[in-house]
């Protein structure tokens, strides 16, 4: 009963918050509209000395990106204001702020309102991006692990590149490895996901912009995330294996291990961390003498070599066989 009341209360609070967010959103919707001003002003009007391209030619690849599409009314290219008379410069100010003073005195530091890079403070950078991108997967950005550690959008994204490496599955991991070096090393272990061959990116599991799950996972739980590709493990099973139903990472390290299939510890020792039952063999000490030539080989090798415990208990993620209580069927 208490649990039901608790659930109802939680749902009611959630709905109230969502309604508040929705209703208030309509009221403030006008805030996001840009004022109707001419998009290009002449150098004579602004005092600018030269087009941006003269000093920043390398950054003009941005004109070939989604941000550079004028036909899309949401982009910097469509909403920005050129201060140099060159329409191509309109987009610079949309993200970097009013560049008039910088254009007049290009060698004077500190005249670009928003700069992107690791030396610049994180909040103005992220605010510039979130002004257009706070929806979708970025809803939970604020308060996310990456936000808390002062990462910026530019820490991972290359806005001026015609293709952003972190948005391509084949190259995504290399961007993440810049900070998560230990994960790169794990990729070389004996048992891994197909990340090295470019079929599996970090974002297959992780929501780098934040989520409600630990480790910023894409789904509500670890298991829900894994079931995206491994739905055969989802059940519900008649005979559950509790640690598997609880959390796949109780036994597996999805970043890679030397114990196939990505097990944290070798069998039979992994199983014996929870199972040492009487009347059978799981409380037995298994060691070197269970291998060929050893004194315990004849009696216990079947519990150690090959698939070890899963030589017989192979339905380790759960069994739906009516006589499968011991996960053998």
């Amino acid at each position: 009963m208490n649990q039901t009341i608790q659930k109802c209360r939680a749902v009611a609070v959630g709905l109230a918050l969502l309604m508040a967010a929705g209703l208030s959103g309509s009221a403030f919707a006008q805030l996001g509209k840009a004022p109707d001003e001419p998009q290009t002003r002449s150098r004579a009007e602004t005092g600018a000395t030269k087009p941006c391209v003269e000093c920043h030619e390398g950054f003009y690849a941005i004109t070939k990106t989604k941000h550079g599409v004028k036909g899309d009314a949401r982009t910097p290219a469509a909403t920005g204001k050129s201060i140099t008379g060159d329409p191509a410069d309109a987009m610079c100010g949309a993200c970097h702020g009013d560049l008039t003073e910088h254009n007049k005195k290009p060698r004077t530091p500190g005249l670009v309102p928003v700069t992107f890079g690791k030396k610049s403070p994180a909040e103005p950078q992220n605010e510039a991006c979130l002004a257009c991108h706070e929806q979708g997967s970025r809803i939970h950005w604020k308060g996310s692990k990456h936000e808390q550690t002062k990462q910026t959008c530019a820490s991972c994204h290359r806005m001026h590149a015609s293709k952003d490496p972190v948005m391509v599955t084949e190259t995504q991991a290399s961007v993440c490895f810049e900070c998560h070096q230990d994960r790169r090393a794990e990729l070389h272990r004996m048992s891994t996901h197909p990340t090295k061959t470019g079929f599996f990116g970090c974002s297959s599991c992780h929501a780098s912009h934040g989520s409600t799950t630990r480790a910023s996972l894409q789904k509500n739980t670890v298991n829900e995330t894994c079931y995206q590709c491994h739905a055969q493990m989802r059940g519900p099973f008649l005979w559950e294996h509790r640690s598997a139903q609880d959390d796949c990472t109780n036994c597996h390290n999805p970043h890679g291990t030397n114990n196939a299939p990505m097990l944290k510890t070798r069998l039979p020792y992994l199983c014996q961390q929870c199972h040492q039952d009487g009347g059978n063999h799981s409380s037995t000490a298994f060691g070197g003498k269970t291998l060929p030539g050893g004194a315990n080989f004849a009696a216990n090798a079947q519990r150690v070599v090959g698939n070890a415990c899963t030589n017989c208990h192979m339905k380790i993620h759960g069994s739906n066989h009516p006589s499968g209580a011991r996960l053998q069927r």
Partner: peptide, 22 residues
Amino acid sequence: LTARLFRDSDVLFRDADMARWS
């Protein structure tokens, strides 16, 4: 630039050259 230049993966087929995607 490190990892970006030298993708720690199958360079043979998907090398570090981002031009391949752009």
